[in-house]
Design a binder for these strands. Structure first.
Length: 299
DNA sequence: GCGTCCAGGTCTACC
DNA sequence: GGTAGACCTGGACGC
C-alpha cells in the first residue's frame, strides 16, 4: 500500500532526514542510493507499522512494508505519524522570515532547512537523548541498537520496533546494564519507563502542549538523567527552540566558527544567539550543521 | 593482549 | 549558588 503525504512549500525531505544524528539510529534506516527513509510507527493498537518514505518531485510517498488492510484508522495514523516525524504541520515561515534578514542565514531558506527529524513518540526521543549523554556517538549507537534488537517487537523480517515504555519498564536494572550497555543510565531509563507505564507521567502530551516553554523545560528537566543539554535538545524536538542545549561538540563548533578556535564561556554563546529570540536554538543548530548540508546535499 | 587514562553530561553531597 | 567527585563505557595510547 502506498500513501501520498502532502508536504508544505519549501519542504526538503533530505535536509530533514539528515538534520541531525537520529536518522542513523534504529528503527530509522536510511538508504542513500534509493534515497529512502524507513521508520517504524506504533499503530495505536499495541502493534507497529513499518514504512518506507520516498521523495520525488514535491511528492512524498509512504509505502507500508508489513502488509495488512488499509483501514481508514490505519491510514490516518500513518499520515499523522509521518507528519509528526518530519514536522510537516509546523509553520517555519517566521523562522525563514527571520533568516532572510541575515545574509549569513539565507542558505537555510534556499535549502528549506530547519525541520529537525524526530521519532514517532516523545518517549523514544527522550530515551535516545539520554543515551547521547556523557558518551561517544559510537556508544549511543550501541545502546540504541541493543534496545531495538533485544527489546523491540518484530514488525517484519529484519525490522524491529523501538521498545514500548511497558517493555522497558519490565526489565531489570542488571539487564539494562549488561545487555543494553547503558551503565549508570539504567536506573534513569527504568524510572522514566515505569512512570509512563504506570500512568503517572504523560510525556506524549508535550508535543501539543500550549504551556510556556519555561514551564515545559522544568518538566523535561525533572526527568532523571535529563540535564541542561538533553532538555534543550528535547525541547527542540517539541518545536521549542528557546534553549541552546550545548554539549562539548557544539561548543567546539562555535569556537571554531566564530572565535578561531578560542574557548569562550557558555554565557557568551548565549548572548551571541539572543538576537534570534525564540528561534535561537535552531539558528545555533543551523550554524553547527551548515557544513553537513553543503557536503551532503550540494545545490 | 593488557592496563591506564581520558572524554562525555548529570546527579548528589558538600561548602 | 557554586564546585568536586562519582557514575560507566569505548577508544586511544603505551608497554
Amino acid at each position: 500500500m502506498d500513501l501520498i503525504i502532502p508536504v508544505p512549500p519549501r519542504f526538503n525531505f533530505w535536509a530533514t532526514v539528515y538534520s541531525h544524528g537520529w536518522c542513523a539510529l534504529p528503527p530509522f534506516h536510511v538508504d542513500k542510493n534509493e534515497r529512502t527513509l524507513r521508520l517504524v510507527v506504533p499503530n495505536g493498537h499495541g502493534g507497529n507499522d513499518s514504512l518506507t518514505l520516498h521523495d520525488t518531485k514535491a511528492k512524498l510517498t509512504a509505502s507500508l512494508d508489513n502488509g495488512g488492510d488499509a483501514s481508514p484508522d490505519r491510514v490516518t495514523n500513518i499520515s499523522n505519524s509521518v507528519s509528526s516525524v518530519l514536522r510537516l504541520r509546523e509553520s517555519f515561515d517566521p523562522f525563514y522570515a527571520e533568516a532572510k534578514r541575515y545574509p549569513r542565514y539565507r542558505w537555510m531558506v534556499k535549502r528549506g532547512a530547519g525541520r529537525l527529524l524526530r521519532c514517532p513518540t516523545v518517549f523514544e526521543d527522550v530515551v535516545k537523548m539520554i543515551c547521547t549523554t556523557n558518551c561517544s556517538w559510537a556508544l549511543t549507537e550501541i545502546m540504541v541498537q541493543a534496545l531495538v534488537t533485544k527489546l523491540g517487537s518484530r514488525v517484519r523480517d529484519g525490522v524491529q520496533s523501538f521498545p514500548s515504555p511497558e517493555t522497558l519498564a519490565s526489565c531489570s536494572e542488571a539487564f539494562l546494564r549488561r545487555e543494553i550497555r547503558c551503565g549508570y543510565r539504567a536506573p534513569y531509563l527504568l524510572e522514566l519507563s515505569r512512570k509512563i507505564a504506570g500512568g503517572t507521567l504523560e510525556i506524549e502530551k508535550w508535543r501539543t502542549s500550549d504551556e510556556p516553554t519555561e514551564e515545559l523545560f522544568i518538566q523535561v528537566r525533572s526527568i532523571k538523567g535529563v540535564g541542561e543539554y538533553a532538555a534543550g535538545n528535547i525541547l527542540k524536538l517539541l518545536g521549542r527552540y528557546d534553549y541552546l542545549g550545548l554539549d562539548s561538540w557544539s561548543r567546539g563548533k562555535f569556537y571554531e566558527i566564530f572565535r578561531k578556535g578560542r574557548k569562550v564561556k557558555d554565557s557568551t554563546i548565549e548572548r551571541h544567539y539572543a538576537r534570534f529570540g525564540r528561534w535561537r536554538g535552531l539558528f545555533m543548530w543551523m550554524d553547527m550543521t551548515k557544513d553537513w548540508h553543503e557536503r551532503e546535499f550540494p545545490l
